[in-house]
Nucleic acid binder design. Structure first.
Length: 723
DNA sequence: TACTATTTAATTTTT
DNA sequence: TTAAATAGTA
């Protein structure tokens, strides 16, 4: 066997990982160290050299994109199609498992997957239905609570209310939410994982079967696994499975959605025989960029420890630009982009990264003014659009009458005279009789309703029945086409004013083409419709396509993870924005922000600009901030300070102009306090004044302290030292 | 039921 | 500032 093609392009560490014996292995893979390459070559090695059957491999990723890429690269390497290889996302694989063993998992055969938006709607309805509205419950928080429990593998009955009425209610919501889902055959994302885990946990035979089948388990982005995902893996690995996990503790940026870096340490405890391979040679960035990244991340505690190095040259210094305000900053970025593009570089090779989506607005304005093509990543995806979800809801109701989530969504869309009151009585009937809205609607219409409302309900029920009958036996796309027309959805959106309705109709037509082009996985025994609906939920599709034009890439640092660009801008590098205000006070949160910064820096291959603004308009008011602490963590010798060529827009006494009071004197002015002034407080330490209000003894200042975040202080009491 | 005024809060996101 | 949710009005 000639192993050259699999090994020739690898360095020593990569080769160690790829050719490692069949024992548990942990690969710590720094940014740009060839993580995906190691994973794909390992699979090729196992199949081609070790003679492992492709059926015996399971490869897990977090995103569909990563799964598709891995499959493509393995096919390229092995020169054979590997469609039967189990490569997929945790959710995709869990879903496949549940479809195969729906009975053992206690699910109806045609269970439906709901996305977070559906989930939130169900929760909102639950809250509205609450009889005593003693507190204001925030739907998002309940949703967060439920998902956090599920991520930890906990069911309502496992939870203790700790004698806290607040918590008791949250658990009650969880319980009721789950009842609704179970009744309607609905499975949310976290539930997919949880059920798949319980399926194996409670079925020794089934588990043994899969343990025998999957000897080799390969996991990408291991630092992002949540508890239930890790438990699932551990269960599958059992005593004899061979896990091969690849991750980077320094790139863990999803703790807030359940990811636990600790699994890296846990792995070494759970698999004491595990060896560790570190990939530290970076093939992406210049030495300067890596040194900066290393220096920043070195401020974190509890790292596994790892130092990226490169054979590439020092390259250019990192350019730090201190702009006057956010428009100034945007102009600076666009100016540099113009130069880049004028020098014949591809615009698509340049990325502008920021901490939060709201920051894209100013940048976009500047780009539009400069007629520079750009693309913003993130935002609504195809299957998440309202009109698409409406159409899918009709299809789901046809396939599954008890799906309350879909029922509620479309019962009065287009409007057919079923108002809030009618719905209320249906809901209470459904609750009292523990039945679905569909059954409740039928019962309520024939018993207790007035003529008009009853007729309206009957019209709806008959519509769905007729749609089901008329589309029976049709092809998927014909079904879809018929439903969007006969349901009145097209007509409904046609009436919507402006371009919006137009776009919606186009999207609905696009849905028909999507249905036409959809090829269900022949392995799964599902109706084409159910397969399509699952696909829509698990793979929400791209945002705006238009990838064909050469344009500048705008995205958050989170969505830039895994990507690389010759030219990178990190914008809005200010304390309060990045690190974000909400993470500043909490050491754990701050460390996660720092890891995000590490991710941002390591996206750059050749040139890195870091920009910050002294003044920024946020939430409608101007505020002052200092450069991000992360900037000062970069060694000076790697940095070159640059300023915009002309500082046209800088007014001389701008700070005083904004908060001028009626008397014409800026609040706090008599005390010598200015916006942007650096101050020191005995307890809170150093900070910067963001805002002033009130007069004389009542004068207050808002101060952003480096250590504790923003505080509002009464000037007369707070003994502030000016600096 | 649909439209308009008012209030409120404001990361990060994939499945 | 602004988007979204809620409350109030025609």
């Amino acid at each position: 066997m000639d192993v050259t093609p699999i090994l020739e392009s690898l360095n020593d560490a990569q080769r160690d990982a790829v050719t490692a014996p069949a024992d548990p292995l942990l690969v710590i893979a720094g940014a740009g160290s060839g993580k995906t390459r190691v994973l794909t070559h390992r699979i090729a090695w196992l199949i081609d050299v070790e003679g492992v059957s492709p059926q015996g491999l399971l490869a897990v990723t977090f995103t569909n994109k990563a799964a598709a890429e891995m499959r493509g690269r393995i096919e390229a390497l092995l020169q054979i199609p590997v469609s039967h290889l189990w490569i997929g996302t945790f959710h995709g694989l869990a879903h496949r498992m549940l479809r195969r063993h729906w009975q053992e998992a206690g699910l109806p055969q045609s269970f439906q997957i709901i996305d977070s938006d559906d989930q939130l709607r169900i929760i909102k309805r639950l809250i509205k239905g609450l009889e005593f509205e003693d507190d204001r419950w925030v739907p998002r928080e309940i949703q967060y609570f439920i998902n956090a429990q599920k991520d930890e593998g906990l069911r309502p009955q496992h939870l203790d209310d700790e004698n806290d009425p607040n918590r008791r209610q949250q658990i009650a919501f969880y319980q009721q939410y789950q009842e609704i889902c179970d009744r309607g055959g609905l499975v949310d994302f976290a539930e997919l994982l949880l059920r798949a885990h319980e399926l194996w946990r409670d079925n020794a035979e089934l588990l043994a079967h899969y343990q025998r089948r999957f000897q080799h388990l390969l996991v990408d982005e291991f630092q992002d696994t949540n508890s239930i995902q890790y438990a699932w893996l551990r269960l599958l690995a059992g005593k004899t499975g061979v896990p091969f996990v690849v991750g980077d503790d320094d790139q863990s940026i999803y703790r807030w959605r359940g990811a636990r870096v600790e699994h890296i340490q846990q792995f070494q405890q759970d698999f004491p025989r595990a060896s560790v391979v570190k990939l530290e040679q970076n093939y992406r960035s210049t030495e300067t960029i890596l040194d900066a990244a290393n220096a920043v991340i070195a401020n974190n505690t509890g790292r596994l420890g790892k130092n990226l190095w490169t054979e590439g040259g020092r390259g250019e210094p990192i350019r730090v630009c201190s702009a006057y305000n956010e428009r100034d900053e945007a102009d600076f970025v666009v100016g540099k982009l113009r130069t880049w593009s004028d020098q014949g570089n591809a615009r698509a090779d340049a990325a502008v990264l920021y901490r939060s989506n709201a920051q894209s607005r100013v940048l976009e304005e500047a780009l539009v003014n400069a007629r520079m093509p750009y693309r913003v990543y993130g935002g609504l995806r195809f299957f998440e659009r309202q009109e698409i979800k409406d159409a899918l809801a009709y299809l789901r109701l046809i396939s599954h009458r008890d799906d309350d989530s879909s029922f509620e969504r479309i019962v009065n869309k287009p409007t057919r005279g079923i108002g809030a009151r009618t719905l209320d009585s249906m809901r209470s009937y459904a609750r009292a009789n523990s039945c679905s809205m569909w059954r409740a609607a039928g019962a309520v219409a024939s018993d207790e309703m007035s003529g008009r409302a009853a007729t309206a309900i009957m019209v709806f029920l008959n519509l769905i029945e007729r749609l089901a009958k008329d589309t029976d036996g049709l092809d998927l796309h014909e079904q879809t086409d018929h439903v969007i027309r006969a349901s009145g959805l097209i007509e409904f959106f046609r009436k919507e004013k402006g371009e919006r309705g137009e776009t919606r109709i186009e999207n609905l037509e696009e849905l028909v083409s999507a249905a036409k082009g959809f090829e269900p996985d022949p392995v799964e025994e599902m109706s084409p419709l159910d397969a399509f609906l699952s696909h829509a939920a698990l793979e929400a599709g791209e945002g705006q396509a238009e990838a064909w034009e050469d344009c500048v890439q705008l995205m958050t640092m989170h969505s830039a993870k895994g990507l690389e660009f010759p030219l990178v801008f990190l914008c809005g590098m200010e304390d309060g924005l990045f690190p974000h205000q909400r993470s500043i006070a909490d050491p754990q949160g701050l460390e996660e922000e720092r890891r995000l910064c590490y991710v941002g820096i390591t996206r750059a291959k050749e040139t890195l600009y870091i920009t910050h603004a002294e003044q920024r308009r946020m939430h409608g008011t101007d505020s002052f901030s200092q450069a991000s602490r992360f900037i000062s963590e970069i060694p000076n010798e790697l940095v070159e300070e640059v300023r915009p060529r002309v500082q046209v827009s800088r007014p001389i006494r701008a700070p005083l102009r904004h908060a001028r009071s009626a008397s014409g004197v800026a609040p706090g002015a008599e005390l010598g306090v200015r916006l942007g002034q650096r101050v020191r407080h005995a307890k809170f330490g150093d900070g910067v004044i963001l805002n002033c209000s009130g007069q004389g003894a009542h004068a207050q200042v808002e101060v952003n302290f480096e250590s504790v975040g923003t505080k509002i202080l009464v000037l007369a009491y707070a003994k502030l030292d000016l600096m």
